[in-house]
């Protein structure tokens, strides 16, 4: 029977991490603005693991403009800038497979730990890596 297990549940700590706040704020945007001002405290998200595939980080200096990443990207995230021989990534399209990281011959791309990337504008500066 399940009753014993359920009573045990009552006494244990909940597994859910109450992110961003213990009680749901009336407006999440308003709450985040308050956090920025220092009026409220954010419950941090569950930390990600070491090898987590988050937003791709780009080292502009190392990039040699070989365009291999553009060839393997399944979501066509990456755009080539011919005049500078560098790339621009639209993170809103990214599927976070990190195949571009594997293919890059000079190690200009790497996986970062960023995952809180929700935005109202898909072309916002947070979502464009160049």
């Amino acid at each position: 029977m399940i009753f014993k297990a359920l009573f045990q549940q009552l006494l244990t700590k909940p597994v859910t991490n109450c992110f961003p706040a213990k009680y749901m704020p009336k407006s999440v945007v308003g709450f985040l603005a308050k956090v920025e001002k220092g009026e409220a405290k954010l419950t941090p998200p569950v930390p990600v693991t070491e090898g987590f595939r988050g937003r791709i980080a780009y080292d502009r200096e190392k990039c040699i403009g070989c365009q291999l990443c553009i060839r393997v990207c399944p979501a066509r995230v990456i755009e080539f800038k011919p005049e500078e021989k560098k790339i621009r990534m639209y993170v809103a399209r990214c599927t976070y497979c990190a195949q571009c990281v594997d293919v890059c011959p000079v190690g200009a791309l790497s996986r970062s730990q960023d995952f809180l990337l929700a935005d109202y504008d898909r072309f916002s500066p947070d979502l464009i890596v160049e």
Binding site: V15, V48, T49, E50, G51, F52, R53, T95, Y96, C97, A98, Q99, R111
Partner: peptide
């Protein structure tokens, strides 16, 4: 679904994501 979480965490640890392991 609560007891399913550890295996998803494990997959995240090994592959880098909970689903779509790539």
């Amino acid at each position: 679904w609560k007891v399913r979480e550890p295996v998803l965490d494990l997959l995240e640890d090994i592959t880098g994501n909970r689903i779509d392991y790539a």
